[in-house]
Amino acid sequence: MLDQVADGVWVRQSEWVWSNAVVVRGESGLILVDPGIAGADLTALADDVDRLGLPVVAGFSTHPHWDHLLWHARFGEVPRYATAANVALAREARERAQQMASESAPGVPLDLIGLLTPLPADGGPVPGEIIEHEAHAVGHAALLLADRGVLVAGDMLSDVLIPLLDARRPGQVDAYERALDRLSEAARDVDVLIPGHGAVARGAEVAARLVADRAYIDALRQDTESSDARLAQEGLAGPHQSNVRQAR
């Protein structure tokens, strides 16, 4: 079920890694940000969107990982926007994304994965400001809806996942610090933060998420043991060790 978190902004969370699909009301209709995850989730999201009584006019993908490249025929044949870098990598990695989706998300329409279009310079129907950076993935972007006090952060600022560096690219610690600087600036007047995975943050918790990610990245840079409580989550030991190796 959709949870309204701000004026014209709704979130639906799936059980798979607490993934958040975001619905944003624009001037001409609805924009779906990172819809997912399994086929049943996409069908339920389509039902929820139908109940809003507004047309879907576009999609938006925050970054080119398979779980952020999904779509369903019921959302319509509308443009699915992303940064130019995201579009390029999604095209290159489309077969791999389809394979990963088939293994982890039953019922996903594999033929609709990763069919992205570069976002026009004026943003097209996507409201707000796009904040592009290089942390976690090529072409990663957050969506700042300043008039509604909302930041849609993609795979950043989660309460359940540690910062996940892109193991294929050097300089990710620096990239993450730069991204956090940009997101901190954007979040100054934000009341609601929507991560790609985990709970929606409200009020003072928004700043606390930024502090937690900075502390984790600082520990990587200083090669000290992190006390991050998120490391207790199952399955994060391997990614953490990958982060440590890359930082060294």
Rank of each mutant, 00 (worst) to 15 (best):
A6H: 12
R221W: 11
M100Q: 06
V190N: 05
S19H: 14
G29T: 11
A85R: 13
D34P: 08
E132G: 06
L45V: 02
V200S: 08
G238T: 09
Q98D: 02
R178K: 03
A237D: 06
H140T: 11
R96H: 02
A153Q: 08
D34R: 03
V244C: 03
Q233R: 15
W16D: 07
I31A: 04
A88L: 01
S184H: 02
E234S: 11
G198C: 13
A90E: 03
A247Y: 12
D189M: 04
P163E: 03
Y216C: 05
H68K: 10
E103Q: 06
V192A: 15
L145R: 00
E185K: 13
R148W: 05
L112C: 02
D191G: 15
R178V: 09
G196V: 15
A229T: 13
A179F: 14
D111L: 03
L236C: 06
H240S: 03
L69S: 08
L52V: 07
A73H: 04
L231S: 09
D189P: 02
R209K: 03
G59W: 03
W16E: 04
L231F: 06
E225A: 15
A201Y: 12
R188S: 05
R248A: 13
E234I: 08
Q241R: 14
E225W: 01
G114A: 15
D174R: 12
L119K: 09
E205H: 13
E132I: 00
P106W: 04
D191Y: 06
S184N: 08
G76A: 14
A146L: 08
P109C: 00
S242G: 08
A237M: 04
G203H: 10
D189I: 04
S227K: 13
R245E: 14
A135V: 02
R80I: 12
R188A: 14
D155P: 10
L151H: 01
V49Y: 10
W66A: 12
V108S: 02
W71T: 07
S61F: 09
A219E: 08
P106S: 06
